[in-house]
Structure formats: C-alpha cells, structure tokens
C-alpha cells in the first residue's frame, strides 16, 4: 500500500547539536506505529518538525504524496495531519460539545461564520453527538471542561482530533497523567480508532505501546535505531542499551 505519510532524511540542529539526524519513515493508511525513545532522544523536536511548528534544516515531510515541508502548521492540519497534546490543551470554559463542534466547523471551513449557532445545525449536532457518544462523554457533553475529570479530558482531546477527520494522527502520550483506573477507557478509544487512519503514537508507557502498536520505532540521539515489530524491539541490543534498560533485562515479552 502506498505511503500516506512520509518523512525523508529530516535533519534539524540546534547550535551544532543534531537533535533530529537524518530521520526517515513511511506510514500506510491503517498503520499503528509507536515512537519511543529515552528522554532527550529528540521525540518532541521530531513532532514539532512534522507538525510544522519547527522548520527542518533539510529533508521532506509528505502527506498523501504532497510535499508539505514548507506548509505551515495550520495548512498541515487542513491536509489531514492532526495531533493531540501530551498535556491537554482544551478550553476550560467551553463544553465538550463546543470543542467538537468547533473542530467540525473548522474542518468544513465554517468556523469563521459570523452568524448561526452550532446548536441549531442538525448535521453538526448529529456528528458531535455521535463522536462524543463513541468516546463515552455523553453525560459531560454540555458541562464545562473545567468540571470534568482529567481522563475524560484526554478522551475529549482524541474526540477533537477525530472531528478534524485526520488522515494521519499523531498522539503525544495519550494516557499521560491519567489514573491507572481510567487507562482502560483510553486504550478502548485507541482500539476503536478508524481502521484506515494512520496513527503515530509517542508513548512512554511500554505496556500501552505493546498492546497498541503493530510497529515500533525507537529514536535515540536524534536517529532511528530500530524500526520493526514489537516482539523484536526488546531483543534488539542497540535498543536495550539505549533505552529499555532494566525493562528489557527483566525479560518482558510483548
């Protein structure tokens, strides 16, 4: 299957230090990829380069075959490259319904409309209701975000991302900060993501990585040192040395 998302020889240095060094990867629709790496490996820089918040020194980012390296962050979202945030970035005084409606309206180029109300737009409300229902947030739909639990806020992050109908979804630690008791709902939401959506998840929780990903990429010192199946990642000597350490030595199997 042809690649929906492609990164070719991406490089970025800060003051002579190569933080992203010749990184290349390709993803096809439906891929479930986890990007892992120790602290300082360059994951955040990579995400910023891919989402357009940083400009690479060289290399290319492509989506659906189109070179988007010079396209700004907003243009990339409009082309289907959507991200969620490690620490939730939601509007505390707005409701989940308003968040999802805003994303739907923005996707349809209607967020700049000066008149009309999403509550009176049946097609928008139907989609809002459907998405929010799928993520189990129906009871919180019209409550302010500041009044709902953090785990539910994380689910809302995913709902907002899905409302933008992405072709490629970057999930930055989707379960970070969520109590153990609530991670099951996050995992279920991840399992229910559209099958044709390419998902790249940056995650530290190795249990979640092994359950979610069908492919794992390990980044260390700005370079990809492993790209393969979850079952092989712990066996790779470079990965053991660079990242997994005691976790791999403990004999954990995927």
């Amino acid at each position: 299957m042809s690649a929906i998302f492609e990164v070719r020889n991406l490089k970025r240095s800060f003051g002579g230090l190569a933080v992203t060094n010749d990184v290349s990867l390709a993803m096809a629709p439906g891929d479930r990829v986890a990007l892992i790496g120790p602290n300082g490996a360059g994951k955040t820089t990579f995400v910023n380069l891919v989402t357009g918040n940083l400009t690479p020194d060289s290399g290319e980012v492509r989506i659906g075959g189109e070179d988007i390296t010079r396209v700004n962050a907003m243009g990339r979202v409009r082309r289907g490259l959507v991200r969620s945030f490690q620490v939730t970035r939601l509007f505390q005084d707005m409701t989940p319904a308003e968040h999802v409606a805003l994303a739907i309206l923005q996707r349809g180029g209607r967020a700049g409309r000066l008149f009309g109300n999403y509550l009176a737009m049946p097609e928008v409300m139907a989609e809002v209701s459907d998405l929010i229902g799928k993520l189990g947030l129906r009871d919180q739909m019209h409550r302010r975000v500041r009044e709902i639990a953090y785990g539910q806020q994380r689910l809302l992050e995913i709902a907002v991302a899905l409302a933008l109908r992405p072709r490629v979804l970057l999930l930055d630690e989707p379960a970070a900060g969520v109590p153990q008791s609530d991670t099951g709902r996050i995992e279920q939401a991840l399992a229910d993501l559209p099958p044709d959506l390419a998902v790249l998840m940056i995650e530290h929780d190795m249990d979640l990585v092994f359950r979610f990903a069908r492919r794992v990429i390990v980044l260390a010192a700005g370079t990809i040192i492993f790209d393969g199946s979850p079952s092989d990642v712990t066996k790779d000597p470079r990965v053991r040395e660079a990242y997994l350490g005691s976790y791999a030595n403990a004999g954990h199997a995927a």
Partner: peptide, 27 residues
C-alpha cells in the same frame, strides 16, 4: 449573534489557547 456564532466560539478559543486553535487548522 456574533459572539454566539462559530466565529465567536473561535475567538473565545483563541483567548484561552491559540496553540490549540492552530492545531485545529485555524489561524
């Protein structure tokens, strides 16, 4: 009408978090 419209909602969003608005594809 304007402050309740999608545009008004977008403005309230910008006031709280412009980075999130950018991540939704709006300027």
């Amino acid at each position: 009408l304007v402050v309740r419209s999608p545009f008004g909602m977008l403005c309230r969003g910008i006031k709280e978090d412009p980075i999130r608005i950018r991540a939704m594809g709006a300027s």
